[in-house]
Nucleic acid binder design. Structure first.
Lengths: 338, 338
DNA sequence: CGTGCTGATGTTAACGTCAACATGGACGAC
DNA sequence: GTCGTCCATGTTGACGTTAACATCAGCACG
């Protein structure tokens, strides 16, 4: 039996089975109150008997909306993004919406606009944009039909609601922690310059140092990967003045640790290291990594909440939501040598 | 202007603008050949002018299908799953389909059946199941309407097409590598018993040992997390007979490394370690981890290819697809002490 | 015992698209 | 010149659902 021939039973089938009109079936399916209890029971029984499932394509056509939200995402397998996506997905399905994934390979205007358009075709109710690259200037995104949008990013440039981790506070905590341990200053391995998160962390690290009247060492720039942290780490490990490093994420911190080990510099005896993210693995790095924990779960939840509010109420962007971070002290930080 | 009032322009609008019938617009939109070139141009120009986008809800209603495929996934943020999902998503959008995500919190019959039902409502063309738990016996999954399905798993129990990494060969390679280095035997930290992948790897490790006439040490069982590897590692580190360990994934290998470091046993001087997966981080573990690389990307691609074939041709399950693995030798393995 | 109201249920039409059939003009063959 | 054929284009209806309106029975009130 070819699968293509199959269509599920429709309301009309249920109506016939229950001896009522299609409209009454619709009312029951939508939980309307103005249906006699006996009738409702009869309809529900008929639904069960014929195996009725509502057809959301028809619903979408009728109502203009699909009870679904789109997620435009780049770099899905990234630790933070996959975590955030998971949180978004969980929150979305909990609300009875479904989620349409639109991966973009590179976060260019064209790709994002195209993804937007495709989502619009799909009659989504709203869109979450999860692309950390501030090349995406708001002015350039054409949003087709007043579709509600939430951006997960720290940029202040968007008109849309914005949700993100408190990058600045996290970086400040990391830097202060090292200063408090007695280090004269703190080196930094930054994330890629296109990343708003990376930029925020770098600026906050710098501001914290300046606020404490410390020298600001030159920045190494990586691209979030362990390899880039390793390369930056090789340079830092060769400099005996370096006693404390704040890496902009845990993966680069891992690369740094490797470089330090290879150079024979003990951690935290000679050099202290702080990361950012608190990956599952970080507690088992060698040594276990002191880091800034961020709650991707909370970011995802807040993003969905903001989006659903926008959808329900037609409200404009509220104040940006900022999710706090937490310093997790493990074994990779200690006071400087003598 | 309330967003709710907005609907995009429809074929009728384009038709009016271009002075043709709606049907002709439809023909142009679908690239049918029997349209005069001049007319086609006129229609395309009109589409551009009014900003027409096809409404896929209407298409889905008309055609019964949505050009979308659903993905039922548990444990999304897992390294392997997020990688695989990314590959699936990329392959799916490349074919012009879109992808509906259905996360399930726990891989129980009920949850999966529910997700299936929801996807069916959405008129998806096919479903990929990405849930590594073989509690999901095929007999228990009710698949509503002959919907094409592909399962990513090594279980032989399914009737559906199955795609997975060649777990057995990978584990054999890992074990043989350690044996070839001269180790008398190889200890194993296994994944959770509900996982088919874990079971395959364990069996293959055991078979390889037995095939070589070696003693099979007792198995430690973890749950894929670094912490579980750490706990298992503490026991192994205390046993001086242990000179080689194959961990069923890189994260547990990382935990093991930590336990070994804490116990003061040098790697690979006293103990050799092999992982499985080749995470991005593994090259920067200390020491850099010898591991089995698996191509989640290939798994995702093959799964989509199989699914689309099923959809297009109404064919039944072909032979299971097995994706080869590759041993990546780094610095965590060496011959045993003296 | 009519009038007006309430609440359950039925009827109609429309959402946007496209398959199927209908129309009508151009052109070649006899 | 007449017929048949082919091709571009138009018309109609249906996919499944639901808002809006219509109907009708029951019931309270003057």
């Amino acid at each position: 039996m070819p699968a293509s021939a199959r269509r599920g039973p429709s309301m009309a089938d249920v109506a016939r089975e229950a001896g009522v009109s299609g409209q009454t079936v619709s009312r029951v399916a939508n939980g309307k109150t103005n249906v006699d209890d006996a009738t409702r029971e009869r309809v529900l029984a008929a639904m069960r008997r014929v195996g009725y499932r509502p057809n959301s394509a028809a619903r979408a056509l009728r109502n203009g909306k699909f009870r679904s939200i789109g997620v435009i995402i780049s770099a899905l397998p990234t630790f933070g993004n996959s975590r955030t996506l998971d949180a978004i997905a969980a929150a979305v399905v909990a609300e009875g919406f479904s989620i349409i994934l639109m991966p973009v390979t590179r976060p260019t205007q064209g790709e994002v606009t195209g993804a937007f358009g495709k989502l619009n075709e799909q009659s989504v109710d709203g869109v979450v944009i999860l692309i950390e690259q501030h090349q995406l200037d708001q002015s350039e995104i054409e949003l087709p039909h007043g579709l509600p949008v939430v951006v997960i990013d720290s940029s202040a440039r968007y008109d849309y609601p914005v949700v993100d981790t408190d990058q600045a506070d996290g970086a400040a905590q990391a830097t202060r922690h090292l200063l408090d341990l007695g280090h004269r200053t703190v080196w930094h391995i930054a994330g890629p310059p296109q990343s708003y998160a990376a930029e925020r962390r770098r600026k906050s690290w710098q501001a914290t140092l300046e606020g404490a009247g410390r020298e600001v060492p030159p920045v190494s720039t990586g691209d979030w990967t362990p390899e880039s942290g390793y390369r930056a780490g090789q340079r830092l490990a060769a400099d005996p003045a370096v006693t404390a490093v704040f890496a902009a994420n845990d993966q680069m911190a891992l690369g740094l640790l490797r470089a330090l080990h290879e150079a024979g510099r003990s951690v935290p005896g000679e050099v202290s290291v702080v990361g950012f993210d608190d990956m599952d693995e970080s507690a088992c790095f060698w040594p276990p990594l002191t880091t800034i924990r961020q709650s991707f779960e909370a970011v995802g939840r807040h993003a969905v909440a903001a989006l659903l509010a926008e959808i329900a109420a037609d409200v404009e962007a509220g104040a940006p939501v900022t999710v706090p971070t937490e310093l997790v002290v493990r074994a990779s930080t200690a006071p400087p040598p003598e």
